[in-house]
């Protein structure tokens, strides 16, 4: 597969804060490439640099062969962008929003009608074409935005948290559309998310934390690297249990909300043995396969969802915690 996005040592500095600390990666044509990480990890900043919204402090990147600083307009024609917040004109109809987009992107006049019908069909909004966007539900607006982002046949579609704020059913639908796109148009999809289940669908996932890329692989491979299974237990005396487990099994135990979590090889066999041998009374047990959250936990010692500190706080804390 040819490379469509090439990123080399891309950096973004704001005064004394480095939002993106030199990331490098390639995205292949036709793949779904996911950016996973907590809020403020630098995902959006990276996407904003790639989509020419902000200029990088240093480093280079090309999209569809065009440099993101030197050939901004060429890059803009090559990409579609779906932002976290809506960018539709809600006072206009779906058709008017789409028509304006065609004009902004110089889609040839004779192609417009055909394209509009096509993209509306992809997102199942054909019968809403002449309705005012204001009357749409959140999910419909999102779908319309995706449709609009496709009108100029971009080579790469950037989706920044495409399903944030939507109910689970609508989220599932949006994903159906995204997968349909990939199959149908062979379009490259570049998305950011902090939903684990969404990252699982990606062909490859780049894990970002504190402005740096800390892992990049297929979801299956990333999970394999965690090693073994995840055992979660609660005991009557967690403090003693924690040190006991660490001593006996030479493994790192994390405690959170009364639950001790640690990794073990061949979890099913281990569990039987463990319950039999362990002296401290166990109150609950859960054995599971690793998820991408465990991948993140393994790499950083934190869970993705814990991350609610503001950028400023993190600047003060630095990386070592």
């Amino acid at each position: 597969m040819p490379t469509i996005v090439e990123v080399k040592n891309l950096k973004k500095r704001y005064k004394d804060f480095e939002a993106v600390k030199g990331v490098s990666f390639d995205v292949e044509q036709g793949e779904i490439f996911g950016f996973l990480g907590p809020n403020g990890a630098g995902k959006s900043t990276t996407i904003n640099m790639l989509s020419t919204i902000i200029k990088p402090s240093s480093g280079t990147a090309t999209i569809n062969g065009y440099d993101i600083v030197q050939k901004r307009n060429k890059v803009r024609s090559s990409i579609g962008l779906i932002f976290q917040a809506s960018t539709l004109d809600e006072k206009l109809t779906a058709n008017e929003n789409l028509m304006l987009h065609c004009k902004f992107y110089g889609v040839a006049k004779k192609l417009r009608e055909e394209r509009i019908q096509e993209v509306l069909q992809i997102v199942d909004l054909t019968d809403k074409r002449y309705n005012i966007v204001e009357t749409f539900s959140g999910g419909m607006k999102r779908r319309l935005e995706i449709a609009r982002g496709l009108l100029h046949y971009p080579r790469v579609l950037f989706l920044d948290e495409p399903t944030v704020g939507l109910d689970p059913q609508t989220r599932a639908h949006i994903w159906d559309y995204i997968l349909k796109l990939k199959e149908k148009a062979g379009i490259t999809i570049f998305l950011t998310t902090h939903y684990m289940d969404e990252a699982e669908i990606c062909d490859r996932v780049a894990v970002m934390d504190h402005g740096a890329l800390i892992a990049l692989d297929k979801p299956v491979q990333l999970k394999k690297n965690v090693g073994g299974d995840i055992l979660e237990i609660a005991t009557e005396d967690n403090v003693t249990a924690k040190s006991r487990i660490e001593e006996t099994y030479q493994t790192e135990v994390l405690e959170k909300e009364g639950i001790l979590t640690f990794q073990v090889e061949r979890g099913d066999e281990f569990l039987v043995q463990f319950v039999k041998e362990f002296e401290i009374p166990i109150t609950s047990v859960n054995l599971r396969r690793p998820t991408l959250n465990d991948v993140f936990l393994n790499l950083t010692g934190r869970e993705i969802r814990e991350e609610t500190v503001s950028q400023k706080d993190r600047m003060k804390q630095g990386r070592g915690h």
Binding site: T52, S77, L81, F83, T87, F104, G106, R148
Partner: peptide
């Protein structure tokens, strides 16, 4: 404020 400016500004128009 309502976001439409982004749609305009990220297009290839000058």
């Amino acid at each position: 404020e309502f976001g439409y400016m982004r749609e305009i500004l990220v297009s290839p128009m000058s």
